[in-house]
Amino acid sequence: MNNGQMHILLADDDEDDRLFFREAFDEIKINTKVETVNDGVELMDYLTRPDITLPHILFLDLNMPRKNGMDCLRELKRIDYLKDIAVVIYSTSASDVDIEETFVQGANVYLKKPNDFNTLRKTLEAVITTNWQYQTSGLNRDNFILSL
């Protein structure tokens, strides 16, 4: 964590959602640097660029054009230097199949996009203040879905 700054990356094809995400972090009083990419292909290109600093937490939308979130998750869990990034699934839907599959593929948290801006802000704050090293070791299906 350079300079105590937390690097956060969001992959989401929806412009409005990217806006809400940035605005929420603007209101959170934590030193963060937020980057966004527009889809799965862009995400994988970004992560494999040599000149970037790897994010601490990746927020991953599932339903994206070109390459969806599930494929991205599988791919980056196979790449050694990417597989330790904490992955938060950030999706509109919360179908049982998606939850099950992303958990099996090694995502850390499943976050359903809230309907309310204040809730969004509080939830994101909770996610980034979690001690991921500790959280990962005790991960189970019950605390996988984040509900506030």
């Binding site: 409005d16 959602d17 809400f20 839907s93 809230p114 309907n115 309310d116 801006f117 204040n118 969004l120």
Partner: peptide, 13 residues
């Protein structure tokens, strides 16, 4: 749900 969620979120803004 997606457009609905946005309507709700924008109102909450």
């Amino acid at each position: 749900q997606e457009p609905l969620r946005k309507i709700q979120t924008f109102i909450s803004r």
